[in-house]
Design a protein around this nucleic acid. Sequence first.
DNA 1: CCACTTGTTCACGAACTCGTCACCACGGCG
DNA 2: CGCCGTGGTGACGAGTTCGTGAACAAGTGG
Lengths: 237, 237
Amino acid sequence: MPRILIAEDDAVIASAMATHLRHAGFDVEVADDGDRAMRKLRFERPDVAVVDLMLPGMDGWRITEGLREEGMRMPVIIVSARASEQDKVHALQIGADDYLAKPFGMAELVARVQAALRRSRTAVEPASHADRIEVPGLVVDPDLHRAALDGHDAGLTALEFRLLYVLAAEQGRALTRDQLQQRVWGVPYRPRDRSVDVCIRKLREKLDRRSLTHTYIQTHYGVGYRFDPLEKTAATA
Amino acid sequence: MPRILIAEDDAVIASAMATHLRHAGFDVEVADDGDRAMRKLRFERPDVAVVDLMLPGMDGWRITEGLREEGMRMPVIIVSARASEQDKVHALQIGADDYLAKPFGMAELVARVQAALRRSRTAVEPASHADRIEVPGLVVDPDLHRAALDGHDAGLTALEFRLLYVLAAEQGRALTRDQLQQRVWGVPYRPRDRSVDVCIRKLREKLDRRSLTHTYIQTHYGVGYRFDPLEKTAATA
DNA sequence: CCACTTGTTCACGAACTCGTCACCACGGCG
DNA sequence: CGCCGTGGTGACGAGTTCGTGAACAAGTGG
């Protein structure tokens, strides 16, 4: 069931959009200000974003730009009372995928959401998240929200699990602290913040230290962290 | 230069669209009836199709449906005098990517074409593995932030990696110290600064010295350095 | 109200990176 | 052959980044 985030502060319009989209078979969430919307976008990674331009907090322009700058590529559909060609052109140029001027029909909204989804669907198909991640000695199951080490629960907290999942989903690739903070905490990285490090340490205590055979989280000095299952050498204490 | 086919029978509108799209840097062709348009679409496979609904011969509906049935996935943007929600919804459902009701501004058309193109482009490249560099015995992967020598990690630092990547990206060409300092350190070269030399030396320790078969970094006396994989001769210690 | 869990912040030490310098080797040139 | 400028090498040290333990804050359930 594709997930959609609606960023819209007008409660009447928001609920109308939500209702129609749910009826069309989408899993819909609503955020009524820009900052909350941005947080949810970063954190939950919906399949489509429907964004009003005029929002309290971060406005629709900055949300769109921010998403693209942070490398998120989900379709963004702008809805707005502003109907000038200038606004449309600018929105499309900074990375929006579609622009609907109010008032618009709900059927059109649904059709445009479906069209946007169809496009991104054919795009991501090959690497569609196969959800469950299995490597020697470790199973990460986002469905059950559990990680099992050598067959039995590793006892991770919610935060630790998310961090592990984000890392494991990009197996082999080094992620910077900023990327991790964005995806796990949903907020930008502040210099000298050690939260990521501490959470990594907890993870290592529960995985690397407890596993007899493997070490999973590697440090890239000056870069960040990387998920990469390596066999422990005899030298390891 | 991306190619666009316009299917439009109104000569005035067609030439206006063509002019503006050409001005935006596209290679544009116009077909003034549906059958001709379909033939060109099949044969020339443009990157984007801009299609009027009302056309002599095959109409826009059937063109859109036909394209999708035949497995062609290029973006289709419908332009039409019909502005009813029903028409929009139907067009999007049968596979159109966007719908512009006449009259529309040329700037908006251009922006929507560009947006459609951007989408289909990012679709092909899942944003990774775009610029991996491979030469005999060495793989430089900017995505993973790692360089692998004969299959296993070379253990480069962040700076060393950047330097290697800049050099390797311009394979065979000699780069001056100034160019390297600019692109790796981001600051201009100061006379008698040996940073580049020292970093080069570290790279050679980790690549040339460790590889049994190749030497990668060559010196141009009085000029700078050059990335060029050469087989080691028997004479080399 | 307290015990307990979870997550953040802080401080300190260890590991590491990277620039500088001194010194040496080598190439180009008269 | 001898000079000078360029480039290679090893050592040192300042500054940064990381790992870790512990204190602190927030949330939960009894």
